[in-house]
Amino acid sequence: MRCALETQGLAKLYGHRLALADCTLTIPTGHVAALVGPNGAGKTTLLHLAVGLLAPTRGAIRVLGESPARGARQLAQLGFVAQETPLYEDMSVADHLRFGGSLNPSWDRELAERRVDQIGLDRAQRAGALSGGQRAQLALTLAIAKRPQLLILDEPVARLDPLARREFLQQLMEAVAEQGLSVILSSHLVSDLERVCDYLVILVSSRVQLAGEIDSLLDSHRQLTGPRPGPWGLPEGQEVIEATHTDRQSTLLVRTDGPILDPNWGVDRIGLEDLVLAYMRRAGRSAAHSPMASTVDP
């Protein structure tokens, strides 16, 4: 299967500062994949490596099956919206469309114009005078109208108010439905993205903590509540992701493939946000326990 993004032992150093260490992950095509992790997990670095803005210090990265060389053909397959949604402040909206048109042979002018109408942007408006939501929408338009196969968005909604956020995601999902795009978007929050993503990668300190289709991840995790067990008390074959205990009661998050039949435990499904947070906490704990996890051999 062709992968949207595939990395093997990928590392990036800025001088001596490690921005990404030994990152190995796979994201298949045909998904809207969320790359979730706390700030500083290396998400932005990873995405910049994917679009060829950065070159890896070590390891391999393949985007749509090819190394993200800076070749024009490979660039044409990728749409990218950077975190700060940089635009040419002095240029008008119309100028930006002309910019997209002249730097992209596969530019879909009709699509771009239609989207600008839909968003309700004034073509004569300078980009510097646009609201945050409008900037994001214009940046998205530029990225989509070049007709990429893979759209990469770095924290696309983090700085948008709820209304702009919703509008942005509406436009994004419409484009995904229309063009069959694969999307990778990063976020430090998952709640915004819950309804738009169907694939999840949790990245904490460069390590992939969990990856997979969201539906099957939610199906394979259960929250168990029951009396505080002894060390023998857990049913076999379950990986405990997180356990919290009070005097009498334990709450466990387990990863399981089969149903849990032990009547001592109350079994609940878990929401995506709780799942993500549990994995992030677990990664935080293991990093605290092994000091080597945060420093990597040069």
Partner: peptide, 9 residues
């Protein structure tokens, strides 16, 4: 997908 902002899948 566009109206609800949900994944087309």
């Amino acid at each position: 997908a566009g109206r609800l902002a949900i994944n087309p899948n």
